[in-house]
Each structure stands twice: as C-alpha cells, then as structure tokens.
C-alpha cells in the first residue's frame, strides 16, 4: 500500500460538500476546547504546560520537516494532533518528554509517511506509544491528584526536570495518585461513578471527564466531521464485552459504566479512532473497525498485565483499517459477477 487506496471514481455531476481540511480541524478544536479548559481546571499549570509544549512541538516539527509547497502547517491538522497528543499524556510528565514525543509523533508518525493523508497511524498515538515504550515508569506513574491545592501556583517537580534527565526522587515521591483503572487492577478498588463521569479523578491530562468528551464528540458528529458509526461500534462493543465479563466474574471485571467512563476510552473513541485518515472509508468498514478496537480494549484491560489498552487497541485498529477497506470495497454498478 502506498497510503493512497484505490478509490472508486463516480461519474459526474459532483457536488462539493463544502468540506475542507481547515473546516474539519476547526470543529475538532472547538470540540476539544471544553476538554482542555477542564483539564487546566483539574490539574492547573501542569496541564497548561503539557498542552502548550505538546502543541508547539508538533507545530514546529511540521514546520521543519514539511517546508515545501506540500506544507500542511496552515490547515490545522498539526494543531489538532498536538492538542490530542497533549491530552493523552500524564499531566506531570517532564516537559522534555512531552516535546520528544511530539517530534516523534509528527516526524515518524506523519511526515515519514508522506504527511497528512498518508499516515497509516494516528500521529498523536505514535508519539504517545513511543513515550510509553521509552519511559514506561513515567508514562504509568506521573499522575497528579485532581484539584491539588497549589495547582495554579507551582508546577510539579517532575514537569520541570532538565532535558534527558530524570526528575529528583522527591519530586516523583510527591506523585502518588493512581488512576481509577490502576486502582481497580492492582488494588481492587472502585472509583465512584459520579467522579468518573465528571472527571474528578487522576489520569491523563484530558481523559478524565467522560461527559465533556462525549459532548465534544457529539458536537463533531453533529457537524459531520466525525463518523458516528465508529464511536457507536467501539463503545457498544466495549459495553457488551464488559457486561459479559462482569456477569461471569464480578470480582475480577468491573461493571459496564466503569468500563465506559474510565481510562482513555472516551478520548480515544471520539477523538482518535475517528481520525479520518487512519480509519476505514465505508460505513460497514467503520462498524467493523469500531468493533475490533472495542474488543481489543476489553481484551487488553481484562487479560494483560496493563491496566489500560485503548492506545494499543486504536493503533492495531489503524493497522487493519486498510485491509478492512480492501475487504469491504463496494462493487461499482454493472461490474458485478457478470450475471445479466
């Protein structure tokens, strides 16, 4: 595959849908604004710094690597990638790691594949998965307690670690809150559902508030910049699979609402799985793609050593998206099996 799948060309007349990359990106940014604002309210300066550095790193990388006439700097796609990437990171992550992941995400995840439209994987997740593999301790431990008292006064000691160096031990010891999924997996403790729904928990910068994320997602669906089938299939399959597991063994597997509202599921389902470049083109493909990701999420959460699996599930979904497109390619009218 060269990234440009064979597309059926339908005969004229065509009507322009009015869509353009900047318009789509503008709506995604609008949908993300409440989430970003809430993240800053919840985690304070740390969230602001993380989001700012993530966005600047993505924009600068795009600027440096894509200088010629193919530059997509102005269309807002790098801005969206930067924002989403920042929202997936632990809020107390050292800023130099945030910047490094942004460079990897845009540089390796997007530009090397030929820029916007050519990337097989969601660039924001490529950046995050690189950090997860490179600095697993930081990526699974640098959480902040929600609504910390001095969150608008000072940055966490881990955030300001010098480039390439680990933070002071004391700064790491100050971070103790585990995420709801970690609490469940490693301590068997359940977080109250209201805290989960409104996002009053520790977690990645922008993943905590299930309601705000869903609101943003619904806005994108209403503006027709996201395919509703993908989050529907994804969340539906997570709900069904979690219900089945919970029914079999309530001690080991959390209930449906917990599964839906915890971790990065809402952020991933609405804002990352719907990436129009890395997801299938046909409606049937969208259903299948969402279903695969949802089942993978439950599989990883329930049976792996890791508490969360949305990131890996979406990346694996991205990997099978071109194949889904090939299997479910519609047959042009008249080019059927030759019975006439």
């Amino acid at each position: 595959m060269t990234g440009r799948a064979p597309i059926d060309i339908h005969p004229a007349p065509h009507v322009h849908g009015g869509d353009s990359v900047p318009r789509i990106m503008l709506h995604v940014v609008i949908a993300l604004l409440p989430v970003c604002a809430f993240a800053i309210y919840l985690f304070g300066l740390a969230a602001l710094a993380t989001l700012t550095v993530a966005t600047i790193a993505c924009l600068l990388t795009e600027r440096v690597f894509a200088r010629d006439e193919h530059s997509t700097l102005g269309d807002g796609s790098a801005l969206v990638t930067g924002l989403i990437y920042g929202l997936t990171l632990p809020p107390a992550l050292p800023l130099w790691m945030v910047a490094l992941g942004g460079v990897v995400g845009i540089g390796i995840g997007k530009v090397l594949f030929g820029g916007l439209g050519g990337n097989a994987f969601n660039p924001a997740l490529v950046g995050r998965v690189f950090l997860q593999a490179a600095f697993p301790a930081a990526m699974t431990g640098y959480w902040l307690a929600p609504l910390g008292s001095d969150r608008f006064v000072s940055l966490p000691g881990t955030t300001t670690a010098l480039p390439l160096l680990a933070p002071e031990g004391a700064a790491v010891d100050a971070l103790t809150s585990a995420t709801p999924l970690g609490d469940w997996k490693f301590a068997g403790a359940e977080t109250p559902l209201l805290d989960l729904a409104f996002g009053m928990t520790a977690g990645s910068t922008g993943e905590t508030s299930a309601l705000l994320l869903m609101l943003g997602g619904l806005y994108m669906v209403a503006m027709r910049v996201a395919d509703w089938r993908i989050p529907a299939a994804l969340l539906g399959s997570v709900a069904l699979a979690s219900a089945a597991l919970h029914g079999l063994d309530p001690e080991r597997h959390p209930d449906v609402m917990f599964a839906l509202c915890s971790g990065g599921l809402m952020l991933g389902a609405w804002f990352m799985a719907t990436d129009p470049v890395a997801s299938p083109l046909t409606p049937a493909g969208a259903w299948l793609y969402g279903l695969c990701i949802g089942l993978l999420v439950v599989l990883i959460r329930a049976f792996s050593g890791q508490p969360e699996g949305v990131m890996y599930a979406i990346l694996l979904g991205n990997a099978i998206a071109p194949h889904i497109d090939r299997w479910l390619q519609p047959t042009p009218y008249g080019a059927g099996s030759g019975q006439s």
Partner: peptide
C-alpha cells in the same frame, strides 16, 4: 558515560 540522573530510553533496549 552520561550524568547519573540520565533518564534511560527503555525502548532502545527492547526489539523496537
């Protein structure tokens, strides 16, 4: 060779 507080890039030791 690097400063003692150097944060190792674990991924480099892994197959990836």
């Amino acid at each position: 060779l690097l400063p003692e507080r150097f944060e190792p890039w674990v991924v480099m030791l892994l197959p990836g």
